[in-house]
Amino acid sequence: MTQKLIPGRLPLAVAATLGLFATATTPALAGECPADQVSADAMAPGAKTPEGVTDEVLASIDLSPKGGDWKGNALRLRKLVVQPGGVVPWHAHDARPANILILEGTITEYRSSCKVPIEHKAGEVTAEFGELAHWWKNNGENPAVLYSADILPPMAHDADAM
């Protein structure tokens, strides 16, 4: 089944995956680190600058009106397109939780807590939170399209938080 994309509208699969409405099905969990490969500081920091990737903020909500600990935070939804050979640089998620949907293509994650790279395929979702630092590279032949929903902490700038 082909989905018609309407400007300003999310594809049905994206809306369902991001939990914008309830469905009877649950998206697949993304590739995970094999249990025998999990280790603290298993992967050294990788690429430090983005390469061959576009990062478009589709929507952002200022959470400050909620008060308290929400002041200065924003909930944002982004679309990232990573070209073959492209890189999403090394970054941490200790202060910025995110859910990532791989909509098209495949992409490889190099995670601080895993001794081996993790392959993510279209249709998978991965949660990023806590003591996680990582970088991503498109080792495939086609662009990888990712949707990222994250909470941007105070004092972070969109350009600084890939």
Rank of each mutant, 00 (worst) to 15 (best):
E119G: 00
E119K: 01
E119I: 03
E119Q: 06
H120G: 02
H120N: 08
H120L: 10
H120P: 06
H120M: 03
H120T: 01
H120W: 05
K121L: 06
K121M: 00
K121C: 05
A122Q: 03
A122D: 01
G123P: 04
G123T: 05
G123K: 01
G123F: 00
G123E: 00
V125L: 07
V125P: 04
V125I: 13
V125C: 08
T126L: 12
T126Y: 09
T126P: 05
T126N: 05
T126S: 12
A127W: 09
A127G: 15
A127I: 10
A127L: 14
A127K: 13
A127M: 09
E128W: 00
E128P: 11
F129V: 13
F129N: 14
F129G: 15
F129Y: 15
F129S: 15
G130I: 14
G130L: 13
G130T: 15
G130A: 14
E131V: 12
E131Q: 04
L132E: 13
L132Y: 08
L132H: 12
L132C: 15
A133Y: 10
A133E: 12
H134Q: 15
H134D: 14
W135M: 10
W135Y: 15
W135R: 10
W135I: 14
W136I: 04
W136R: 05
W136P: 06
K137D: 09
K137M: 11
K137W: 07
K137F: 09
K137G: 05
K137N: 08
N138G: 11
N138V: 00
N139A: 09
N139S: 09
N139H: 09
N139L: 11
N139G: 02
N139T: 15
N139M: 08
G140F: 04
G140P: 05
G140S: 12
G140Q: 10
G140L: 10
G140M: 07
G140C: 09
G140K: 02
G140V: 07
G140H: 02
E141Q: 15
E141Y: 13
E141G: 05
E141R: 12
N142H: 05
N142C: 01
N142T: 13
N142M: 00
N142E: 14
N142A: 05
N142G: 00
P143E: 04
P143L: 02
P143T: 01
P143W: 01
A144Q: 05
A144S: 11
A144I: 03
A144P: 06
A144W: 06
V145C: 13
V145G: 10
V145K: 08
V145N: 00
V145A: 02
V145Y: 03
L146A: 07
L146Q: 09
L146W: 04
L146G: 03
L146D: 01
L146T: 01
Y147M: 02
S148G: 10
S148A: 05
S148R: 01
S148Q: 03
A149S: 08
A149D: 01
A149Y: 03
D150W: 07
D150N: 12
I151H: 02
I151K: 03
I151E: 10
